[in-house]
Design a protein around this nucleic acid. Sequence first.
DNA 1: TTAATAAAAGACATAAATGTCTTTTATTGA
DNA 2: TCAATAAAAGACATTTATGTCTTTTATTAA
Lengths: 144, 144
Amino acid sequence: MFSKSCEYGIRATIFIASLCYNDTKVGIKEIAQEIDSPMAFTAKILQVLVKNDIIKSSKGVRGGFMVLKEDLKRITLSQIVVAIDGDSVFLRCGLGLSNCSEDHPCPVHEKFKFVKQDLAFMLENTTLEEVSIGIKKGTTFLKY
Amino acid sequence: MFSKSCEYGIRATIFIASLCYNDTKVGIKEIAQEIDSPMAFTAKILQVLVKNDIIKSSKGVRGGFMVLKEDLKRITLSQIVVAIDGDSVFLRCGLGLSNCSEDHPCPVHEKFKFVKQDLAFMLENTTLEEVSIGIKKGTTFLKY
DNA sequence: TTAATAAAAGACATAAATGTCTTTTATTGA
DNA sequence: TCAATAAAAGACATTTATGTCTTTTATTAA
Ligand code: FES
Ligand code: FES
């Protein structure tokens, strides 16, 4: 469904968000531990998320990553996915034709249309707040 | 969504199926042309589909690939996908956790569940017959 | 029975995704 | 001002997916 990069990116963002209630910044080492991901690789992905205004970062002593409390309702899964993997998951032809359109449909176009719409709708309407609550409460998990 | 292999595999199978009404076998060269795919690579994928009883093949003069008419209703997109990519698209955790379960859900488990179910249902209930009709009639396309 | 044919099989090549390491830059607190 | 810290940046390494080429095997028709 998503690339590894995207999976790590979502997991990292949710973890960082789950800590934002106490305004704590968190370092890449702890993030990688908590989501069980390769540290250096995850760091690269976080750079993209920072550039896309999804998470904030600060360098130096007491630096780290954080999500702004006011962003919890604004940021959706869709924004994270698009930042890392692009919009191909929703828009691409399911059979790999160069462009997916009603004018030149592949044999599964009508069927895939709904699945892709559902996925897009779900991602666009799922906020960071919603998915980070479970982590804070301990009812959902980010590793194993 | 699917791997390139799987995309080519589905397209090839649909094309072969669209010809099965006149019991014509078709060679790899023509298949690759009609679905605009790399010929040698596509040949490899077709080997897998033959092994999985999705298409038939015969070697030598007047040999080629075909789909049995009686298989048109039996074969579903799901079978093709599983043969090539496995069942990870339906079963894997959307965030890459090692196993997706109600007992140890990731933060998007409840949301993804429905999307994955819908996809699985669609693929399991879409027959080769259904998707090859459009190709025969010329209302759907396998390339560009 | 042989030559032509076409898929199967396997070795090899290339590109893309994933992952690691080192150096640089910015920040902070002593 | 300086040393310590941590992210950013960039070069590099490894693995996986994608794609190609050659040889082998099976089939057919002459
Ligand atoms: S053309 Fe293939 S999904 Fe739209
Ligand atoms: S545990 Fe992640 S989708 Fe089920």
